[in-house]
Design a protein around this nucleic acid. Structure first.
Lengths: 254, 254
DNA sequence: CGAACAGTTGAGACATGTCAATTAAAGTGG
DNA sequence: CCACTTTAATTGACATGTCTCAACTGTTCG
């Protein structure tokens, strides 16, 4: 029986939805983040002139289900995810909705709002979230452009492009099972990049969201999970995923 | 018989692959572009401090089939397409390739190279092309960040994000015919944005490229074209497309 | 406790992929 | 300039993968 039982204990580094109990209260007084924390969250590896920048950025907390950004809303800044998982989606003109990303800790929100001065996608919190707001006033300083923050922000935006291209390439596979396997690989890598276990994590999104993201139906996602489970590559229990062979998952279908 | 005959004359504003005869020779001496031309190409609608910026940017010409950017190559700047059509693709790890964009006049190339210092996708010219190089020296000036160019570049990068999201949403449709119809809509709009006819143009890419881009086989693309032709919505002759009803094309499948 | 939702699984319909044949166009070399 | 090859594109027949519809279970939430 490969299926992972929900009642067994999760290890300390297993990712789980944050603030599920009352973690929010524990840091009630920490409502600001500094520039170094932003750099750390973004995993910025370049050089900045003044690491002693004393700028403080206001945090914004969201309950699961709340909107972080609304489509059409005027651009008022970028957000860095400090904690939590979100879902970015666009309406497809004719009413159809399409999930385009699942932002997590360290990801940037709102970068699509710069060019038209308004956000062009909707971002909703899947779990309780903690965001750091980088207001447009600090981004676009007209008097002096000598601004480390601006440089870092644009570096992060370039990274967004890469991530989107990767995500786009994700949907390029003839078979849905391969797409799902690849999706799990990417999720695993992202959890690893955040410092959590790459072999055991809880997906914050529904099967329907995954299917929408991968352009298959939720039933197909479920069947793909079951197929991978039968092969002994993963274990599935609701939204909890355990990966037994990253190699098999990565090379699945090729 | 709706099928458009190849031997009939194309109107002046119908887009056709540039430099097909000897247009290159005509502007042999124009090897530089100024800042205003870059702004115009990018269709930048914001404010810049000094429109009298005398910066000149070197152009780079490519023959059809030549690479504009190679994956892994160190980042040395961004490029703005002045003329021509290109194809951006990524290798998918296991050898599979995926077309992620079809850049055209006014589009930005190389924005995925900033965050890791090397280009992460391959860009190849589908037609003869003329690019404007914006070197990284001019983009990242360490001594004084009061740089309009940098601001415009990042604005354009934000637009890239939006375009990619739209392209990603493109693949979200249950049926392949809908995807192909939507693809033609987008192409039409892009030709219109460049000042060409939205109702009559020549696709620069093969059916295989389109299929790869939309994640269907080339036969399915061909069948979708034929289906739309039989409905009287479009006419197809090789790579030349005529659109008889933009409305029908846009709302197809919904 | 009942309602709503998330998820799994099955059966059948249908769309798309695969394989193959054909045509037209474009490039190649004598 | 003409055979020759290669490539792009269309179309058909068939196999197969995915969607649709449906039933059922377990969980969550009021």
């Amino acid at each position: 029986m490969l299926n992972f039982q929900a009642d067994s204990n999760l290890s300390a580094d297993t990712w789980r939805p944050p603030f599920s109990q009352s973690a929010l209260k524990l840091e009630k007084d920490e409502r600001w983040s500094g520039f170094p924390e932003v750099l750390d969250l973004l995993r910025f590896d370049g050089q900045v002139r003044q690491t002693h920048d004393a700028s403080l950025f206001r945090r914004r907390r969201l309950r699961a289900g709340q909107s972080a950004l609304r489509m059409g809303q005027p651009f008022d800044g970028l957000y860095v995810v400090r904690l939590g998982s979100l879902k970015t989606w666009m309406t497809h003109g004719d009413g159809g909705e399409h999930v385009v990303a699942f932002p997590m800790k360290g990801d940037l929100l709102g970068s699509d709002g710069i060019c038209q001065g308004k956000y062009l996608s909707e971002v909703v919190a899947l779990t309780d979230c903690d965001l750091i707001r980088i207001p447009s006033e600090k981004l676009f300083v007209p008097d002096c452009g000598c601004n480390d923050l601006e440089r870092v922000a644009y570096w992060a935006i370039s990274r967004e492009i890469v991530q989107e291209q990767s995500a786009y390439a994700l949907t390029y596979s003839p078979k849905s099972e391969v797409r799902v396997a690849h999706f799990l690989c990417i999720q695993s890598e992202r959890f690893a990049a955040m410092g959590y276990s790459p072999s055991r994590f809880i997906l914050p999104m529904t099967r329907r969201d995954i299917g929408n993201y991968l352009n298959v139906t939720l039933e197909t996602v479920s069947r793909a999970f079951s197929a991978l489970r039968r092969l002994g590559i993963i274990a599935v229990d609701r939204r909890e995923i355990r990966i037994f062979s990253h190699e098999a998952l990565r090379s699945y279908g090729s």
